[in-house]
Design a protein around this nucleic acid. Structure first.
Lengths: 207, 207
DNA sequence: GATTTAATGGAACTGGAGTCCCGTTATGAG
DNA sequence: CTCATAACGGGACTCCAGTTCCATTAAATC
């Protein structure tokens, strides 16, 4: 994902500026046209950057989106801390709900998910992105486990993912996605966790 | 979705044969190349059909996939009936798990979902497809509600969807999808339903 | 501030997806 | 069986995404 910076590389000044401009242009293009209608020539025009540059540095739409994801993962936003498990999970659920229905972020995420479903590298970048998000929120669950509110075997990451899953499923099927669904998602996750269903995965398949 | 068959139409013989050939070719092409790399010219070649025909009747990749979904929805497969709610939901969960990890169906579904995330009409076709699937399995839940095993306000459709959601979420993020995850999904759905979380949606937006 | 060489940009080129035109096939009606 | 026409097929054409080549710019090092 993060290149080890080959010897003689020049990440400074212009290169960084070009990357930022292209990523922002890609974002705009994805929001307007979606994943299927995206072409790198258009991105280059928007970014006021040579078409050749975009093709040389990224090459494919999928690679560009993967880089965009890496960039998004870098700017992590802090979780809420309401003091209670329910409060935190509700905050998380509503954050996801708002993100997926936001006029800018919604279409952007749809495009990114479509790319991840198409390309393995993009999927890996997406997983990395979510891993950082999950790691950010997992402490809320861990606190509840330590406090005896949830079974000891509970896997915090699974609980966080259980909150998101139904919301993303609605996005996939194009079903309406209202704040009430966020409530439902958070409460369902808590119920499953209390029942001891969300324990560690059966085996660790590395990679 | 289903055209009302305009006056003077000729759905007989050749037309139906062409449609079948094109849909099968589209399936193969989607499995091999994925959604992004699909072009109608290639589909036409595979189906041994005039390129013009494909462009005239479907026009876009998304429309072709939407038609493929309509075709898939038409052939509904029967649900299992094990006698218990847990047994039925486990059967459903494992059916979904097997489908999504099948060497043919898996890539096909990924491609279809990518298309649905890109195009509104495809999303509508997908929703219709899932509605038939959900309606097929909902009776298992309804029986449990009538038998007093689940709260009266439980929405059967929501329970079925709650089983699929985490499995599709794993597909989205490219996480491994094992039979154990199917067990977990079914049991989580039951726990949430028992807790009374999976009740009817807040309001019916009749689109 | 001179030098080296990544990295970018412009312009010409190319291949194939998508369109158009028109002749051919075969379905459905009488 | 005949006729009208919906639907299909072949081939030429267009257009633009993606590639290639080379000149230009500006980081990095001294």
């Amino acid at each position: 994902m993060s290149e080890p910076t080959p010897p003689g590389a020049r990440p400074g000044g212009r290169t960084a500026r070009v990357r930022a401009a292209v990523l922002r242009a890609a974002e705009d293009a994805l929001i307007e046209n979606g994943f299927a209608r995206l072409d790198l020539a258009d991105v280059a025009r928007r970014a006021v950057v040579g078409k050749t540059t975009v093709y040389r540095r990224w090459g494919t739409v999928e690679a560009l989106i993967a880089d965009l994801l890496a960039d998004m993962a870098a700017q992590s936003l802090p979780r809420a801390d309401t003091g209670t498990l329910e409060g935190d999970l509700l905050a998380n659920a509503h954050l996801v709900q708002r993100t997926l229905t936001d006029p800018r972020q919604g279409p952007l995420f749809r495009a990114i998910l479509a790319a991840a479903l198409t390309d393995a590298d993009t999927a890996a970048a997406l997983r990395l992105f979510y891993d950082t998000r999950v790691a950010e929120w997992a402490p809320a669950v861990r606190t509840a486990v330590d406090g005896g509110d949830l079974p000891p075997a509970t896997d915090p990451a699974q609980v966080i993912r259980a909150v998101s899953a139904p919301l993303y499923y609605r996005l996939l099927t194009g079903a309406p996605l209202l704040p009430a669904h966020a409530d439902q998602a958070a409460h369902s996750a808590i119920a499953a966790a209390r029942a001891g269903t969300l324990t560690s995965p059966p085996q660790h398949l590395g990679r």
